[in-house]
């Protein structure tokens, strides 16, 4: 992985900060004028959900960062276990996350050191 330049990182960071705060400020400005149940809000929710789902599946199936060095079976298996535990425990997020993370860590541990 090539070392990204500090200027690039600062610009990326600033872009992300603006792209985040703009929604907060808009929410304050619109609060009381536009209902949170307007159809456009549904659309915003759908776009955010689809992007986040895409990001998560990308991190599980085709990771670009540090997870790229881990076996795909470990990632998919741990994610499957997390979802299974979540639904088996009446949608308990914490238990699902703990189960999936622990399984993933143990898998890597037993499978030998990862570069």
């Amino acid at each position: 992985m090539a070392e990204p330049s500090a200027l690039y990182l600062i610009l990326a960071l600033a872009a992300a900060a603006v792209a985040t705060y703009v929604w907060r400020a808009l929410g304050v400005a619109l609060g009381g004028r536009l209902g949170a149940t307007a159809p456009v809000m549904d659309w915003i929710g759908c776009v955010a959900y689809a992007l986040l789902a895409g990001l998560i599946l990308r991190m599980i199936l085709l990771p670009a960062g540090p997870l790229a060095d881990t076996p795909a079976l470990a990632r998919v298996g741990a994610a499957g276990l997390a979802v299974a535990v979540f639904f088996a425990t009446r949608r308990n997020v914490a238990l699902g996350v703990v189960a999936g993370t622990t399984a993933f860590t143990l898998w890597l541990w037993i499978g030998g050191p990862v570069p």
Partner: peptide, 14 residues
Amino acid sequence: AVGMVNARLLPMTI
């Protein structure tokens, strides 16, 4: 991408 994924902050703030 960051703007889209964080757009859910708008309804939350409202």
